[in-house]
């Protein structure tokens, strides 16, 4: 069930209403609005690619601009398909920007992992073992050992696969979704369920997880 939000539909501000009117018009006015919107989406895509540039060291400037153009094109298609969903809860341009940022960030993550295999489970166990040794000694060693045991014994195969890849092996969820031919939302549901089960299993073994987290902050 969706969580209640106090964000509610309202009349769009003047500038947003103008965007909607121009995009809903015919002929030259609509074409001009589409071109202007595409320009904004391209700016947002380039902004995102600039932020993530370090994760794509092998890309040439031309490749980056191609990615930006693709992101802006795909965002424009998504926006036009969802135009009726805009309820004026933010400025229209803010609403539109998020589509460009999503397209660009997903493309960057996938491009950064192009040609790379998803790491194996034993690499995740090495991460856990390393964390157990470098933290507060025996107490953390017990906790991390229990985490590994419960991941292996309490989780379903898909829950285990997603938790290990995303939480331990740093595989971006969009990359995993592409490899498993699913989507971010479905995988996050698996991740959420895995975390819930893991928490419950550790609590049943007597670990006070809230206390552990508080002490470590």
């Amino acid at each position: 069930m969706p969580m209640p939000s106090e964000i509610s539909a309202q009349l769009p501000d003047e500038e947003s209403a103008l965007w909607l009117m121009r995009l809903g018009a015919a002929g030259a006015e609509r074409q001009a609005a589409l071109a202007e919107l595409h320009g904004l989406l391209l700016r947002a895509s380039r902004f995102e690619l600039g932020r993530r540039r370090a994760t794509l060291p092998h890309l040439r400037p031309g490749d980056l601009d191609d990615l930006a153009q693709q992101s802006a094109d795909d965002a424009l298609v998504a926006i036009l398909a969802k135009l009726g969903d805009f309820r004026g809860e933010s400025r229209f341009t803010t609403w539109a920007y998020k589509f460009a940022l999503l397209e660009a960030s997903v493309k960057v993550r996938r491009r950064a992992w192009q040609g790379r295999e998803i790491p194996l489970e034993r690499e995740a166990w090495a991460t856990l073992a390393g964390a157990a040794r470098t933290e507060r000694g025996a107490e953390d060693g017990e906790l991390f050992a229990a985490i590994r045991e419960e991941i292996e014994s309490s989780l379903g195969p898909r829950q285990r696969e997603v938790l290990v890849a995303v939480a331990l092996n740093d595989v971006p969820i969009d990359v995993l979704a592409e490899r498993l031919q699913t989507n971010r939302g479905a995988l996050y549901k698996n991740l959420h369920d895995a975390r819930r089960k893991l928490r419950a299993a550790l609590a049943a073994r007597g670990f006070d997880l809230e206390l552990d987290r508080k002490e470590e902050r």
Binding site: L209, R213, E216
Partner: peptide, 20 residues
């Protein structure tokens, strides 16, 4: 055995256990 760069046990626990 290697740990993820720059990742301490608290961050690892947060990623494993989620917000709760």
């Amino acid at each position: 055995e290697p740990t993820a760069p720059g990742r301490g046990g608290d961050e690892l626990l947060a990623r494993l256990l989620g917000p709760g």
